[in-house]
C-alpha cells in the first residue's frame, strides 16, 4: 500500500514540476518578455521535433551518439575494471602507475580533441577515443579505491575455506566491490554522455553533439532546444538502466546497511 503510493509519487511529483515549468515557459513566451529569436516558444520546439523526426535526422543522430558512447564506455569498462582489480591487488603496481592514471584523469577530455582528429579523423573513431579517455581513468581509480576498502576478514574467510587465487578474485574481490562498481559505472556513464556531445561538436558530422552545433550555426534556437531535451532525456534513461543493476539481490547489502 505504502509502496504503491511511493511509486506513484516518484512519477507524479517530477511530472507536476515538468508541467509547471513548461507552463511558465509558455507564459513567458506569450507575454512577449523574450523575443522568439532568442528564446523559442514551446509550440516552435514541438514543431522542431516534428521536422527533425520526419527528416530522419533525429533518430540517426541518437543512434550515432549511443553507438559511440556504448563503444567507448564499453571499452573503458572492459579494460578499466581488470586493470583496477590488478592495481588493487598489487602495491608495487599501484606505486608505479597510480600517479600516471591520476595525471590522465585530470586532463579534460576536451584537451584531446585536437589529437583525436589528427589521429582518427572526423567520425566514430575520434569520438569513441575521447569517450574512452574521459571514462577509463576515473573508472580505474574507482575500482582501485573499492578494492582497497574490502575488509580483510572476507579474504581470511575465503582462505579458511580453501579458495584459490582465481576464486578469490571472482568470488570475493569482484562481488565485494560490486555496489561501489555500480555507483562508479553510473557516474562514468554520465561523464561519457556529456563528453560525446562535446566530442561531436568538432569531430563529427552526425550525432546529437553535431546537431547542437549545426542548430547553433543555422541560428535555429528551436532545434537547439529539441536536441537539448533529447540529450537530457537519454542521459536520464541511461542512468535509469544502470540503476536497475542496484536491484540485483546479491548487491543490495551495499545500499541497505
Amino acid at each position: 500500500m505504502r509502496e504503491k503510493s511511493n511509486t506513484s509519487r516518484t512519477f507524479l511529483l517530477p511530472l507536476a514540476v515538468g508541467v509547471a515549468a513548461v507552463t511558465l515557459w509558455w507564459l513567458l513566451c506569450t507575454s512577449g518578455t523574450w523575443s522568439p529569436t532568442q528564446f523559442p516558444a514551446p509550440r516552435e520546439v514541438w514543431a522542431g521535433f516534428g521536422e527533425e523526426f520526419q527528416q530522419g535526422r533525429l533518430l540517426h543522430d541518437i543512434g550515432a551518439s549511443l553507438f559511440r558512447v556504448g563503444t567507448g564506455f564499453g571499452l573503458a569498462v572492459l579494460l578499466g575494471v581488470p586493470l583496477g582489480l590488478w592495481l588493487g591487488s598489487s602495491a608495487l603496481a599501484r606505486l608505479a602507475l597510480l600517479p600516471w592514471i591520476n595525471f590522465f584523469r585530470c586532463l579534460s577530455p576536451l584537451a584531446w580533441i585536437g589529437f583525436a582528429i589528427l589521429w582518427f579523423g572526423i567520425g566514430h573513431k575520434s569520438a569513441i577515443f575521447l569517450i574512452f579517455m574521459a571514462t577509463f581513468f576515473p573508472l580505474v581509480l574507482s575500482v582501485v579505491a573499492a578494492v582497497a576498502s574490502i575488509p580483510t576478514v572476507y579474504f581470511r574467510v575465503a582462505h579458511d575455506h580453501g579458495f584459490g587465487s582465481a576464486e578469490m578474485l571472482w568470488r570475493v574481490t569482484l562481488p565485494a566491490i560490486m555496489p561501489q562498481l555500480i555507483t562508479a559505472l553510473r557516474v562514468v556513464a554520465g561523464v561519457a554522455w556529456v563528453v560525446v556531445v562535446a566530442a561531436e561538436m568538432t569531430g563529427a558530422q552526425e550525432g546529437l553533439g553535431y546537431a547542437v552545433w549545426d542548430a547553433r550555426n543555422g541560428l535555429r534556437p528551436d532545434l537547439l532546444a529539441v536536441e537539448m531535451i533529447v540529450i537530457g532525456s537519454i542521459g536520464v534513461a541511461l542512468d535509469w538502466l544502470l540503476v536497475q543493476l542496484t536491484k540485483i539481490r546479491s548487491v543490495r547489502w551495499g545500499y541497505e546497511r
Partner: peptide
C-alpha cells in the same frame, strides 16, 4: 581449522544458506 570472527565474517553477497555452504 575454522575461525569464527568477531563480526562481519559472513560474506554479505551470499545468503545465509550460501554462506553455510562454503
Amino acid at each position: 581449522v575454522r575461525t569464527v570472527y568477531q563480526q562481519g565474517g559472513l560474506l554479505p553477497w551470499l545468503t545465509a544458506a550460501q554462506n553455510i555452504s562454503l
